[in-house]
Nucleic acid binder design. Structure first.
Lengths: 160, 160
DNA sequence: CCGGATCCTCTGGGATACTG
DNA sequence: CAGTATCCCAGAGGATCCGG
């Protein structure tokens, strides 16, 4: 368990499933959050905000790549592995499971021999895909600036 | 060094700075990538695509939160730490440095006593902020579906 | 108040071998 | 071919102390 816990928060953590992996320590009851008067939109900053969990799901390199890949068209497991360079078998499966759990990806098994498994974006996943796609565009458009900035930074002698 | 290396790629890796931390193993010469005939927009999947590096920068929970926070207004270091619940001193500094290196955040020091440091989004950072903001919106709108899906998934007895 | 330096823990993630 | 189970290590990240 991580140390930040529910420190100081009015202790009503009630999404048992959420906390199952170390990354997302959850989070308080959703209803509470929703009933609360509209705070700062970025109550995301509070550990208690369930939205942070969604961050955990898209804040994952592999997940983004997988979603992006499925955005083009449905794929079978092996295709994904070959398409996404550098992903390991383990991480692929793991990522797909998580996405499936979150309802972003649907998994379809064909009991053929050899076995075959297809992955599809759900409508929910597709909607997120829109953002992923913008991310890709942004990257392509601004990669130059970023790289330049990095070079400048690394050259500078007086960085903090 | 990670094992995926430049396997099979026409070996022209030339961004020394990139590889400095383990996370982004880089990546091939940018010019090459750009000169290449327009491939699949998601050549991001190739390890050789510099765009992946940008992914590394936004694919970081803390970075997203920091950018989101600065999106509201400039902040001083301490404010950020207090605002973003759960971030440690170390991670905050580290994240800010990375964002600064990438040219997304500007750091301004006031030689007062006690010292004071302000952080501001650069125009570049602000443009990325647009996407970050959409991410937040998406999260708020779809968190219910995601949570429901998770509960369903966890209840189901026959998951893979 | 800002943040660098250390130490130490724990886990993310690769490599490998095995089942159906 | 798809997926699980094991082993194992580098490095992400927290806690702490210190110095400007």
């Amino acid at each position: 368990m991580v140390s930040i816990g529910y420190v100081g928060v009015d202790s009503v953590p009630k999404h048992p499933e959420c906390a199952q992996d170390g990354t997302n320590r959850c989070l308080g009851d959703l209803k509470v959050t929703k009933a609360d008067p509209p705070l700062n939109p970025w109550n995301v900053f509070k550990v208690t905000c369930p939205t942070r969990q969604v961050l955990n799901c898209i804040t994952d390199k592999w997940a983004v790549l997988v979603v992006g890949c499925l955005l083009e068209r449905d794929r079978r497991s092996g295709e994904l592995r070959r398409e996404i360079e550098g992903i390991s078998q383990k991480m692929l499966t793991q990522t797909l499971r998580a996405l499936e759990r979150d309802g972003l990806v649907r998994r379809e098994v064909f009991p053929s021999v050899p076995p075959r498994v297809d992955y599809t974006l759900t409508p929910l996943g597709r909607s997120l895909g829109g953002i992923v796609d913008q991310l890709r565009e942004w990257s392509e458009q601004h990669i130059d600036q970023v790289l330049q900035s990095q070079q400048r930074y690394d050259k500078a002698p007086d960085k903090p």
